[in-house]
């Protein structure tokens, strides 16, 4: 059974959101938890702006708990302290598939140095598994459902389009968001900067 939880600080209006999406069942709960996280993120963003802090708080992302392809819940918080690259993707999104082999290469190259890629698929488990096998995916593929896209909306992905990628530094701050393909040179530069800073 899939259960989505948020950390206490972000668990706010889950019930209210659930109430508005009764026909989605399990998906609604996933969405509700994510929307709750998004609300918390937006709140944190406001705080950041008043404080002129240099980067946004990524705690709503780290609060996500989503099933992997085996149905086991995975908390993104388990990668807290790593340089985290969260990529929203789907097999029905050709540009998503095209950029992923470079993510696999970067994970292999920088994983031991503290870089962790996590894919959040807006897709069916079977298709995700087939594609993961095809490209030798070496990082977790979580199943986000459409609710997961809602979170990305608060980070500049107004159109809910894919691919969408968020890079967090070791302190859990959002240092980069990218709608559309993240070019290999851009990604490598970002990771090099973050690894150097750490």
């Amino acid at each position: 059974m899939v259960q989505v939880t948020a950390e206490p600080a972000t668990a706010g209006p889950t019930g209210a959101v659930e109430g508005r999406s009764p026909r989605f069942g399990r998906r609604a709960r996933v969405a509700a938890a994510i929307v709750a996280g998004a609300v918390a993120l937006a709140a944190g963003y406001g705080v950041f702006h008043r404080g002129n802090a240099p980067a946004r708080d990524g705690s709503a992302i780290l609060a996500m708990v989503l099933p992997d392809v085996q149905g086991r819940e995975q908390a993104l918080a388990q990668w807290r302290g790593k340089i985290l690259v969260v990529n929203f993707w789907a097999t029905w999104c050709a540009p998503c598939r095209e950029e992923m082999p470079h993510f696999v290469a970067a994970q292999a190259r920088d994983g031991a140095k503290g870089v962790q890629f996590v894919g959040i698929a807006v897709d069916d488990v079977a298709k995700v598994q087939a594609f993961a096998k095809e490209i030798g995916l070496n990082y977790p593929a979580l199943i986000g459902g459409y609710g997961a896209i809602e979170l990305s909306k608060t980070l500049g992905n107004d159109l809910s389009a894919l691919p969408f990628t968020i890079v967090l530094d070791r302190q859990g701050r959002v240092v980069h968001t990218q709608l559309g393909p993240l070019k290999p040179a851009k990604l490598d530069g970002l990771l090099a900067d973050l690894l150097e800073a750490a």
Partner: peptide
């Protein structure tokens, strides 16, 4: 999808 390199959900 858009030729610019993004796809929209169903």
């Amino acid at each position: 999808c858009a030729d610019a390199g993004v796809c929209y959900p169903p």
